[in-house]
């Protein structure tokens, strides 16, 4: 591997990392797991002037439930999510679908979230579960709802001198279920289409909260608010989930590519949304 020349800073604290990132301007990148960044540097699609390595910063590997949230620190690897018994619903369902075991061992959840690749899996899960992103900059910490954090294709809401320190995923207190259904061509491939579904049920089984988000079928991970609205207040049923599937298909804007035609991808969205919601409802018990 022969990337272009770059400077390298091994930060030992978040403050040091933020300072190093702020100095370098927009050609500076944070290096966490490196599983998206380094392959792009290898083929020189990414040519950062400086890498700020955060792997040596203590405390960023926090993974815990506190105050009704699951805290996922900036150095928590995908494999940690697979192994953890703190995950639930769509989060638990998605973790083993992240790329392949090699990438999961090294790649981080927060890195994937920050990357804002519309083919990335975690942002759909976060959109469906209503998570927050915690960012730190020179003036302190701010909490950004995931819907605001994901701006566009490879574009997040961070300022140049900010970095993501953790993600907070709300843990439902009542009956809930979730699922992540992913169609990939092979292990390690990005999703051709994937759907994250999250349901919370109230007394009598009525849906009190619904999350539905799509991977790889829009310029960014897409929260299907129409479908979510249609689900809330209803009893789970095949017909309801089929209707949500139709709304998801309509909301998606896939493109023809080597993975398949847009028409077919929309059909997979329709099918997977229906199936994911059914699985979520079933797992809510």
């Amino acid at each position: 591997m022969f990337p272009s020349r770059f400077d390298y800073v091994a930060a030992t604290s978040v403050d040091e990392a933020i300072a190093a990132k702020g100095d370098g301007g927009d050609e500076t990148r944070i290096l966490a797991g490196g599983q998206s960044l380094l392959p792009m540097m290898k083929i020189r699609l990414a040519n950062p002037s400086k890498l700020v390595d955060i792997n040596g910063i203590p405390g960023l590997d926090v993974l815990e439930r506190v105050n009704g949230h699951l805290r996922v620190g900036a150095l928590v690897r995908h494999a940690d999510m697979v192994a953890s018994d703190l995950t639930f619903g769509a989060v638990e369902s998605a973790a083993p679908w992240i790329s392949d075991p090699l990438v999961r061992n090294r790649g981080t959840v927060c890195g994937s979230v920050s990357h804002c690749d519309p083919e990335g899996d975690w942002n759909s899960v976060l959109l469906a579960t209503g998570a927050d992103v915690v960012a730190r900059g020179p003036s302190g910490e701010r909490v950004i709802p995931i819907g605001d954090f994901v701006v566009d294709l490879f574009t997040n809401a961070l300022n140049e001198d900010e970095m993501v320190t953790e993600i907070r995923i709300p843990v439902p207190s009542g009956r809930s279920g979730g699922a992540y259904l992913k169609l990939e061509r092979k292990v390690g491939d990005y999703a051709t289409v994937a759907v994250a579904a999250h349901l919370e049920l109230g007394g009598g089984g009525v849906i009190t909260k619904a999350g539905l988000a799509l991977t790889s079928v829009a310029p960014h991970n897409l929260k299907v608010t129409d479908a979510e609205a249609a689900l809330v207040g209803e009893m789970p049923s095949e017909a309801l989930f089929a209707e949500a599937g139709e709304l998801a298909a309509a909301a998606s804007s896939p493109r023809d590519d080597v993975r398949g035609t847009a028409e077919w991808k929309r059909q997979v969205v329709r099918t997977f949304a229906r199936r994911a919601l059914a699985t979520a409802a079933a797992s809510a018990g």
């Binding site: 392959p39 083929i43 392949d100 061509r185 092979k186 292990v187 390690g188 491939d189 080597v258």
Partner: peptide, 28 residues
């Protein structure tokens, strides 16, 4: 099931790395 090298109309090779050119693993 998955493996091919195709080209766009300008003759650009689609399949120039293992992200686009697929080798099945033991899993599939």
């Amino acid at each position: 099931s998955m493996q091919w090298i195709t080209f766009d109309d300008d003759g650009n090779c689609i399949g120039s790395n293992f992200m686009d050119y697929l080798i099945p693993t033991a899993w599939e």
